[in-house]
Each structure stands twice: as structure tokens, then as C-alpha cells.
């Protein structure tokens, strides 16, 4: 039964991917000509026309679109105009750096957001709760590019503790990850706090107290798993925020990842590269959502039976 759900979700994911690729294809081709973006303004029009001819850009859009799909299903993502290398290869070189950044950012969100939210909920109304909530508001009010620049100014320029860019050593990660994860951690902390408060008021918590379950066990073993269910949805959304956030963060810290490649490629009208990145991004979103749905089934028995996947 659980296989049925996965198949349905995969089909829906493929539809999403199809729409995203199509949208990106047309928007990119209708908003600017790669040849005039690449060549100086005073280039001979005949040469430019020749280049368009070579790259197939002067053919009807529909024909280009069909051709694009035909190559895509054969695993050909197209080549960069500039150096002719396969787009997939160029993007692939950048993936590890971005993965390092976004996965660390995700870990930061979970490891900082959840404990802060729980701490605030358990100490509701206390100075600690108020402090955490104040930090949280500040956290998600700060635009990440501003936070990044602020960090560079303080820790690189003033204190000279951390390098402003570079990506080889672990400490290079500190500022970018903090920049990328702060807003998400702040949102998650608030969310976890409110769902914990709701759960801590539930009758089953009172009943657990009445049979003498220690408070620590109540919070971690009863309340947290119940409160985590809605928080997981928000974590799923965070993946999208992390991807868009990484574009800004990579630009601020000169991080050699996909985000910076995307910015450069859009400016240079490197259609194949942009398309590949858009597709990868959409794919990671789809995978994130699928993971969230499956996690639901694992954590919440009611979902399992409601979808007919129970025994």
C-alpha cells in the first residue's frame, strides 16, 4: 500500500518537474538573446546571426522546445555557449559546495530551532522564553544578505577572527551557515514553541502527569513527538528557503556553489546551465516534500491508517 502512495507521488512529482522545465525554457528564451548578451555591442550582425544559426537559436521556439526534450530524455542537458562543456558537468562541479552549505544550514535549523522552541515552551512566560522569542523575531527580521555583510564587518574586518571568503576549511563554513540558517531556525523555534504549548495542554499530558511520569520524559517522549508532526511540514518548506537563501549567501561569501553559478549564468544567458540548475532545484524540492509526506506516515499512525497503509 505504501508503494501505491510513492508511485502516485512520483507521478505528481514528474508533472511538477515537467511544468517547471517548460516554464523555465520559455521564460529564458523570451527574455533575452544569449548572443547579444555575450558579444560586444559593435559585433558584425552577420557574425551574430551565424552564431544563432550554429546554436539553433533562430529556429521556431516550438521546434527548439521539442528538441530540448528529445535531448533531455537521452541525458543530454545541453552545453554551455561559452566553452562548449556539458552543462551537467559544469553544474556538477559546484554541487558539493552547495550541498555542504545547505545541509549544514539545515542541520543548524534543526539543532538550534528545535531546542530553543522546546526550551521556550517548557519555560513559558519566563525571562528565558521572552529572550528566545525576542532573538527569534530579530532572527527572521534580518535579511540574510544584511546579516552576512554584518558578520563579515564584525568578524572579518573588525575582529579579524574569520576569513570573509574561502571554502576549504571547516571554519569557512561558520559565517555562511549562520547567515543561511538563522531565519529558518528562528521560524522553527517559534513554531515548535507554539505546537509544544498546544500539546503540553492536551489531556494526555495531564494524564501522564497523573500517573507520575517524570516531567523530562513527558517533554521528550510524549510531547515532542506529537509536537513534531506539524513542525515537519514547516521543515519541508525550509528546504525551499534554504535553496533561495543559498543563492544570496553564496554571493555574499563568494562561495563556489550553484547559487553563484546561477547568478552568473542568468547574466550571461547560459541557457543550458540555468535550465539544469532550475531542474535540480525543482527536483530537490520535490524530494523534500516527498520525504516530509513519508515522515508523516512514519511518525503519525493516524495518517498511516487514514491513507490505508496500515495493516
Amino acid at each position: 500500500m505504501i508503494g501505491g502512495i510513492v508511485i502516485r507521488r512520483v507521478l505528481r512529482a514528474m508533472l511538477t518537474m515537467f511544468l517547471v522545465v517548460t516554464f523555465a525554457f520559455f521564460v529564458l528564451r523570451l527574455t533575452g538573446d544569449p548572443v547579444s548578451a555575450m558579444m560586444p555591442d559593435d559585433t558584425d550582425p552577420a557574425i551574430m546571426e551565424q552564431m544563432r544559426e550554429d546554436w539553433g537559436l533562430n529556429r521556431p521556439l516550438a521546434e527548439q522546445y521539442v528538441d530540448y526534450w528529445w535531448r533531455l530524455v537521452q541525458g543530454d542537458f545541453g552545453n554551455a555557449f561559452r566553452d562548449g562543456r556539458p552543462a551537467l558537468e559544469i553544474v556538477g562541479e559546484r554541487i558539493p559546495a552547495t550541498l555542504k552549505l545547505t545541509l549544514s544550514g539545515f542541520a543548524f535549523i534543526v539543532l538550534v530551532g528545535f531546542p530553543l522552541g522546546i526550551l521556550a515552551a517548557v519555560n513559558r512566560g519566563s525571562p528565558m522564553d521572552r529572550a528566545i522569542m525576542t532573538i527569534s523575531v530579530t532572527g527572521f527580521s534580518l535579511p540574510n544578505f544584511f546579516l552576512g555583510i554584518l558578520l563579515i564587518l564584525i568578524f572579518s574586518v573588525q575582529l579579524r577572527w574569520l576569513p570573509a571568503f574561502g571554502s576549504e576549511r571547516w571554519y569557512h563554513l561558520l559565517m555562511p551557515v549562520f547567515t543561511l540558517g538563522t531565519a529558518g531556525a528562528a521560524v522553527i523555534a517559534r513554531f515548535v514553541r507554539s505546537s509544544m504549548l498546544e500539546v503540553l495542554n492536551a489531556p494526555y499530558i495531564r494524564a501522564a502527569r497523573a500517573r507520575g511520569m517524570p516531567e523530562r520524559a513527558i517533554v521528550w517522549r510524549v510531547a515532542l513527538p506529537n509536537a513534531a508532526i506539524p513542525s515537519i511540514t514547516v521543515l519541508g518548506f525550509m528546504v525551499g528557503a534554504l535553496i533561495s537563501g543559498s543563492i544570496v549567501t553564496e554571493t555574499v561569501f563568494a562561495w563556489p556553489g550553484i547559487g553563484r553559478l546561477l547568478i552568473d549564468s542568468v547574466a550571461q544567458r547560459e541557457l543550458a546551465i540555468v535550465q539544469t540548475i532550475v531542474m535540480l532545484t525543482a527536483l530537490s524540492m520535490v524530494v523534500a516534500n516527498l520525504t516530509v509526506d513519508l515522515l508523516y506516515l512514519v511518525i503519525d499512525p493516524r495518517q498511516r491508517y487514514a491513507t490505508g497503509t496500515g495493516e
Binding site: Y204, A208, A210, R211, G212, N226, R302
Partner: peptide, 25 residues
């Protein structure tokens, strides 16, 4: 008194379904 809860003294409630942890057997 807190130590007696569960062992020497117990309580049951009106809404039994809501008084059980919904996600554990």
C-alpha cells in the same frame, strides 16, 4: 505526593481517548 502519583494514587478522566498519547499503541 508527587512520588505517590502513579504508584499509590491514580486518576482517570472523562475523555479517555484524548487522555491517551495519540501516536503510541
Amino acid at each position: 505526593i508527587a512520588r505517590r502519583r502513579g504508584s499509590d494514587a491514580a486518576m482517570i478522566f472523562q475523555d479517555a481517548t484524548a487522555s491517551l498519547n495519540p501516536i503510541r499503541c
